[in-house]
Amino acid sequence: MNMRFRWLTAAALSCAAFAVSAQTVVLYSSNNPEVIANAVASAKKQHPSLTVKQVTGGTGTLMKRIQAEAANAGGDILWSGGVGTLAAFTDVMESYQSPEAKAIPKQFQEAKNRYIGTNVHVMVLMVNDKQLKGLAAPKTWSDLMKPEWKGKVVITDPSKSGTAFIQIYGLLKQFGREGLEKIAANAVVVQSSGQVYKSVSAGEYPVGITIEASAYEFVAGGQKEIKLVYPSEGTYLGAEGMFIVKGAKNAAAAKQLYDVLLSKPAQELLLVENFRRPTRSDIAVSKLTSMPDLASLKVFPLNLQVATEEYEQLISMWNMAVAKAKR
């Protein structure tokens, strides 16, 4: 039993050690481990005494957790969630005006500084050349509505993923219900966004609707048959943001991390290493990567806050379109 006692003492001591270090910040993050690792490395570089403890999970899960912990906050900062989602949770957020926010365009800022955009997702068509089998690669959304693409386009169930929700919402706004039904008729619907890029990479389907950052990883990783198509009719953008949790126990450290995540070095690192398109206006994307500058892309504008309000409607409309296609 002696060993057990010694272990308990050690555990107690290490807990005490955590308690005295005021420079700890608890990061709730939905990002993948490599993205988080780069963010943490950036933070360490700018603030060597800052220790980032991470809790990872899906954005939805983490938001629910923050709500459940409202009386006794367990996390200090959440990074990141789609701004449409974040807009629905402003009551658990602490306002913070970061000095770094100067470089962020107004469109990515919230009026009361409760959350801010950290990166932008661009919706793309991920194409596996080897699996086209004679078909010409699609150039835009309406190409995918043609009958020859039946069963060849993989997309995520919009109720399972925030980015998939934006894709479907965009298609509805741009092409109406009819366009949505045509897409639904051709689509193979999967339950997680990861399945879309993994299965296009694996050659199960020739085309997938996904986000630029995920698809580009395969291009950068050296899989030659993978191409990214930015729809010429206009693509959709989904900004992701972060916020400081209301009642955060380590508010000062949380602000430090908040500033780091908005800083130029951190956003550049995440762009070059993880293909996260920055929100800062002073980073030239096409110089640092082979991804195009946002200014050179045609964008179909969406109001994501309104989109969130129309969530239930869209999901049921989509489910009906899928059901209709099955008949």
């Binding site: 608890v26 990061l27 709730y28 993948n32 481990p33 490599e34 403890k53 991470q54 809790v55 990872t56 367990g74 996390g75 990861g194 890029y197 993994k198 990479s201």
Partner: peptide
């Protein structure tokens, strides 16, 4: 598990989920 308590099997499980087979 929660923040700071991630173990090897949990990491492996999450990495496989995001397609990072090398790591």
């Amino acid at each position: 598990y929660s923040g700071g308590l991630e173990t090897l099997p949990i990491s492996i499980f999450r990495l496989v989920d995001t397609g990072r087979l090398g790591l």
